[in-house]
Simulated scan of single mutants.
Amino acid sequence: MSAPLRQTYSLDEIKHMLISQLDSVVGRYAPPAQGSYRAHGKYFTLNPGRADRHVGSFCVTMAGPNAGRWNDYAVGDVPGQGFGDVIDLIALSLGCSNADALREARAFLGLQTASAEDVARHRAAAERSRQFQAEAAQRDKEKRESRARAARAIWHSGQARLRDTPVHHYLRGRGIDLARLGRQPGVLRYVPHCRYYHEDRETGEVFEGDFPAMVAAVTNRRGMTVACHRTWLAIGPNGWGKAAVPAPKKVLGDYAGAYIPIWKGKGPRGGKPPALHQAEPGQHVYIAEGIEDALSAVLLLEGEARVIAAISLSNLGRIELPPTVASVTLISDQDENAAARAALERAIALHRAAGREVRIWSNAWGGKDLNDALRLVAAETSEEERRA
């Protein structure tokens, strides 16, 4: 048996050694709790570094190109607190510095007293992990490209003219009359038969069907369509509304950092405005969370401003805007939820960090969001007109 050696390993080697036995790592540094579960290659448990009360916001990626990476979506984009790698996970769990976490990792792996055989075994495990991640990264790239192609195909299959379609009636029911704008948003289309699939994570129950859908193209900062947003529709007692399915809104494709370009505003001297990625410097952009709020803003601003939809609150500050955008107005809900308020604060900080002036448009008319406000204003106006 060879004598123990004091061996030097690179940080990358140690990380890959940890990833090669990730189940054991998370078992010690992010242990299971009541309600822990695994889904879509991720392990969900309580955040070991804070007083986390419910499983759901903290997860560790267990496989693929991002294996070992963890996120806490309730905390957000704070390195070491809201996200990190496998060394950061140890630091988070023990409440220590990364230098101390690295020493802990060496102890966990038994590297201080490793024999020559141990050294060879550890390095081989790290190399296998590195190869697996490289292969997984390639597969992940191919899957992303495939999803983007499928998303573009769905959007291109849609009907561009919305008048008298279920999309037109659905938006009218939400107080959004596109006729008032003189033109419809080119990013929206109507798909008469859009495939729906949803699997309940807890029960395994599957929901499938074909429904009419409002489909929106999701673009990146270069103007390329990378995903599509679908809102499935059905007719009910009060007309067209969202379909009665578990999740009537879904995105196909990776939309992190991307957005839905709802409205371009008005161009120079009232002409046709360019796309955002082609616009001149000094642009101001209104950013709403969802499509309906964004369209409500377009109507309330009488079509004068450029408005985009972030799709989700977590993406509100992560949108990658072209450098020509100098300022943004974030459209906020009247939401008393602490996580929602924290997400808005993070979005403000991220846009300011990117060098943009940030303004907030808070709904002052009532209701939870801007679309609620639009409908309240419309209802009050109708009542006043009836009394006149």
Rank of each mutant, 00 (worst) to 15 (best):
L350P: 02
T8Y: 08
E384I: 14
P322R: 01
E145N: 06
V358D: 09
Y196L: 09
A107R: 13
A297H: 04
V251L: 02
D118W: 03
G76F: 06
V187G: 06
L374F: 04
G64P: 15
K264R: 15
D118A: 15
G223R: 06
S24E: 14
L316D: 00
A39V: 09
D200A: 06
R50V: 09
G223P: 15
A126I: 06
P48Y: 01
V119F: 01
V298Q: 02
S57G: 10
F108I: 06
R121S: 13
H156T: 10
G27N: 05
L188K: 01
A310M: 01
A279C: 00
L376R: 08
E117S: 14
P268R: 01
A353W: 07
Y190L: 11
I311H: 04
A153H: 12
L350C: 02
L188M: 15
P48L: 08
E357G: 10
Y259G: 01
T165Q: 01
P166Y: 10
R221Q: 12
L301M: 07
A126E: 09
G271F: 02
G80K: 00
R149P: 00
M224I: 08
A297D: 04
K250R: 05
G95Y: 06
V325S: 00
R50K: 12
G64F: 11
A258D: 05
A227G: 07
I348A: 03
V60P: 07
A297G: 07
G239A: 05
A91S: 03
W263I: 05
V78C: 02
V328N: 06
F207D: 11
P268E: 00
R163K: 08
S382P: 08
G239T: 00
R144T: 13
G182V: 04
L102H: 10
W361M: 11
V358N: 07
R387G: 04
T45S: 11
S24L: 13
L109F: 00
H277E: 06
T203F: 12
I19P: 15
C59L: 12
I14F: 09
I14V: 15
P48R: 08
S312M: 03
L376Y: 02
G282V: 07
Q112D: 15
F207E: 10
E385Q: 14
P65I: 04
L321I: 05
G367N: 01
A153T: 10
W263E: 01
E304G: 08
A256I: 10
F83S: 05
R352C: 13
E336I: 10
L162V: 00
C228T: 13
R189H: 11
R318Y: 01
S2H: 09
Q159Y: 00
L181E: 01
L344N: 00
A116H: 14
I90Y: 02
R195W: 06
N337Q: 12
D118P: 09
S129I: 05
F83H: 10
A160V: 06
G257D: 03
A247E: 06
R147Y: 13
R144Q: 15
G158L: 11
A51M: 11
K266Q: 12
A378F: 04
S146W: 13
P48N: 10
D52Q: 09
N371D: 03
V187C: 05
L92W: 00
Q133D: 02
L300M: 14
E302F: 01
L89W: 05
G27C: 07
R306T: 03
